[in-house]
């Protein structure tokens, strides 16, 4: 932990570094994949277009494209950022003087909860913007007025589950990887015992990372569509 001397704000520098690394990787992938764009796509452009269409599909399955088109960029960036973040902690982790430096940024609840809260706040913002304050407020009394308290709880539950699901999955994966790595480093027998589960768990973690990125984007669009779309 490091305290900024000017405002007294605490930073977890490991988080900051890993966020920057993830952002840099995503940016580089996207940047170099979209150089030399052609009407007849080749190579990486195909891949990027596939991602775009994939996110477009997610949005379209939740709301009308007229409403959802503006979330396209958000969706693609979220998907790639979270996926890359999830992958970062898989190959290795670096611990310096007992402090974990290299890990998935999404294995930190602060980061995931920040993303989740941002999404929920965005959904409220666009809900009010799209439907007006009156209709937005009226949605809390549907389908039955007495469900109002539940509706309020739902909002917080959504935020919590959205952030903690991602955090929990990735963090658990890294803990297990860390334990297996400890076992693998313990000796020749430990390595023999750990090698196979390690490979299996890494493969599974890649799967989990991809699935969690997809789920996060999917739920983002679901929550936003609940607020934005007229019928739901």
């Amino acid at each position: 932990m490091w305290q900024d001397p000017l405002f007294g704000i605490w930073f977890n520098l490991s988080n900051v570094m890993m966020l920057l690394v993830a952002a840099l990787i995503v940016f580089l992938i996207a940047f170099f994949a979209t150089r030399n764009l052609k009407l007849k796509p080749t190579g990486m452009q195909n891949f990027m277009e596939w991602i775009m269409d994939f996110v477009k599909g997610i949005i379209k399955s939740n709301m009308d494209w007229r409403d959802g088109g503006r979330f396209h960029v958000l969706g693609i960036t979220l998907l790639m950022f979270i996926f890359v973040s999830n992958m970062l902690g898989l190959p290795f982790s670096i611990i310096v003087n007992g402090d974990l430096w290299w890990k998935s940024p999404t294995a930190d609840p602060t980061v995931t909860m920040t993303l989740a809260a941002t999404i929920i706040i965005l959904s409220h913002y666009y809900g009010i913007k799209q439907k007006g304050l009156k209709n937005y407020g009226a949605d809390y009394l549907k389908p039955m007025p007495f469900l109002f308290p539940l509706k309020i709880i739902e909002e917080f539950a959504n935020t919590l589950t959205l952030g903690l699901r991602l955090y929990g999955n990735i963090f658990a994966g890294e803990i297990l990887l860390g334990l297996l790595a400890g076992l693998g480093g313990a000796g020749i027998f430990g390595f023999a015992a750990a090698a196979l589960p390690m490979m299996a768990w890494q493969g599974f973690s890649i799967f989990i990372g991809a699935i969690q990125a997809f789920i996060f984007v999917m739920l983002t669009m679901v929550y936003i569509s609940h607020k934005v779309a007229d019928d739901h």
Binding site: M1, W2, D4, I9, W10, F11, N12, N15, V16, L19, L20, A23, V26, F27, A30, F31, A33, T34, L37, Q45, M48, E49, M52, H72, V73, L74, I76, T77, F81, P105, D108, T110, V111, T114, L115, T118
Partner: peptide, 27 residues
């Protein structure tokens, strides 16, 4: 750790804007 929250937001939003300008927009 408000710093982490701020860093997450700033990094993510900056990434989104940059990508929009350099990658998603052209694509």
């Amino acid at each position: 750790n408000i710093g982490d929250i701020a860093a997450t937001l700033i990094v993510f939003i900056a990434l989104m804007l940059l990508l929009k300008k350099f990658a998603w927009g052209p694509l």
